[in-house]
Amino acid sequence: MIEVSSIKRLFSILLIVIFCFLLSGCWNYNGLNEISIVAGVAIDRNIENNNYLLTIEIFDLSGKDGVSKAKIIETEGQTIYEAIRNAKKSLTKKLYFSDMQLLVISNQIASEEGIQYLLDWFIRNEKPRETFSIIISQEKTAKEILTASAVDHKVISEEVERILDLDNKVTASTKNIDMYKIVNELEKENSVFVLPAIHCVTNQDKKIVEVNGVAIFKADRLQGYLSPEETRYYLFAVDEIKGGILTFPLNEKKQDTISFEIFKNKTKKSYAYDGNRLKVYLDIKTTVSIGENGNDIDLSKKENIDKIKTVATMVFSDKLKTLIEKVDKDFACDAFEFGKMVKRKSLVSWSQLNEDWNEYPKNIEVEIRPEFEIINTGLIK
């Protein structure tokens, strides 16, 4: 009779042999010498034949100094997929999209055609990651962004992504959203969202890229842009401020200014609805320090601190109110997510407002109630 221990030993050996075959490697493994790693893609239209024109930035791994560099290739096709396949006509290696960081879409395509179709291949294909950034080029073409000069990195896609990641904590001049979140928004009824806007500026005779606010989308079509300063106040309204600087004039001549550094912010939305009129309240509590005092006000006196708070509150309220009115007038969309707030708080109220919501944002009364807490005046001894 065979002992139990012998059976267990035989079974263990059999499992080891099976696993050696099953776990010996990836079935679709590609070596670095067989692939071109894609860093970013820019999408334009070829005006001559109306094909999609793709500018693809790939990592150049041929250098011996260990520093990532970039190469640019161009390809075109009737669809995004065809254009990507056509790139093989001029490449010996296969395009590898798993490390893709940036998708640049031209202003013209975003406004005239929308972006939903452009994302189809990136969603349908399993290779591109779902967290790459999508930006809108404010230049004549999207290509101009990927072919601009980099400042801190050799790869422009990598540089732009890092700028976007840090922006909300440093300047609060744009809003970065991962690709999969945009796809989720596009599936919703009456979707409104924003994407980073990028343009080029001249720096020491070189053309470099610069964040330039946000692009506002209604459904999948570009409606227009908010400047970096307008974007900062937009981020306050939607409770997505994590840092940045606020500068206020302390007199009508706007000669004496003071700058706040933002440490913390919390924006709470609430509303009142009587069946006819909707009123929204924005309670904004911001913790700041005084980073620069461009006047001779004595910051050791409480009455002067109170004066600064009063002026800052008035200016802040006026600028945010002006922005809300501009968005309602120019874009006619619920960019500040008031509808989401009403729906979350009361399905009864939302059921009464939902049917005509596309027109309703124009008639909303908004009361802004900011409050600044100054935790550090930065007194100079």
Rank of each mutant, 00 (worst) to 15 (best):
E82W: 03
F97H: 01
Q78M: 09
K93Y: 04
K93P: 01
Q78I: 12
L95G: 05
Y96N: 05
A83I: 06
I72G: 14
A83K: 09
Y96F: 06
E76Y: 13
Y96A: 02
E82G: 06
A87V: 00
E74Q: 13
E76C: 07
A83P: 08
S90M: 08
K69I: 04
S90T: 14
I73K: 03
L95M: 03
Y81W: 07
K71A: 12
E76N: 14
L91Y: 00
K93H: 12
Q78G: 04
S98K: 08
A70K: 07
K93R: 15
K69F: 03
G77Y: 11
I72D: 14
L95N: 04
T79Q: 05
A87L: 01
Y96T: 00
A83D: 08
Y81L: 15
K93L: 03
L91I: 01
E76K: 14
T92F: 03
I73G: 04
K89G: 15
A83E: 07
N86K: 09
A87G: 02
E82A: 10
I84S: 07
S90W: 00
T79V: 08
Q78F: 06
K71Q: 13
A70S: 15
Y96G: 00
N86S: 06
Y81K: 15
R85N: 12
K94E: 07
E82I: 13
I84C: 10
A87F: 01
N86A: 07
K71I: 11
F97W: 03
A87H: 01
L95Q: 03
K71R: 15
G77P: 04
K69N: 13
A70M: 08
S98M: 11
Q78N: 11
A83T: 07
A87Q: 02
K94H: 01
T79W: 09
Y96D: 11
S90A: 02
S98V: 10
K88M: 12
G77R: 06
N86R: 05
L95C: 04
F97M: 03
Y81M: 14
Y96M: 03
R85A: 06
A70H: 05
K69S: 11
K93I: 05
R85E: 11
N86T: 06
K94L: 02
K89P: 00
I80C: 13
I84A: 10
E74H: 05
K89C: 02
T79K: 04
K94Q: 02
E74S: 12
I80S: 13
S98T: 13
R85M: 07
K71P: 04
K69E: 12
S98H: 05
K94V: 01
I84N: 08
I72W: 09
L91A: 00
A70L: 04
L91S: 00
R85Q: 09
I84W: 10
K94W: 00
T92C: 00
A70Q: 14
K88H: 08
K93G: 02
F97G: 02
I72Q: 13
E76M: 09
A83W: 12
L95T: 05
L91R: 02
F97T: 02
K88W: 01
I80Q: 10
T75M: 15
Q78C: 00
A87D: 01
K89R: 12
S98Q: 11
I80L: 14
K89H: 07
I84Y: 11
K93N: 10
S90H: 01
Y96P: 00
K71D: 13
K88E: 12
R85V: 08
I80V: 15
L91E: 06
I73N: 02
Y96K: 01
E82K: 13
E76D: 14
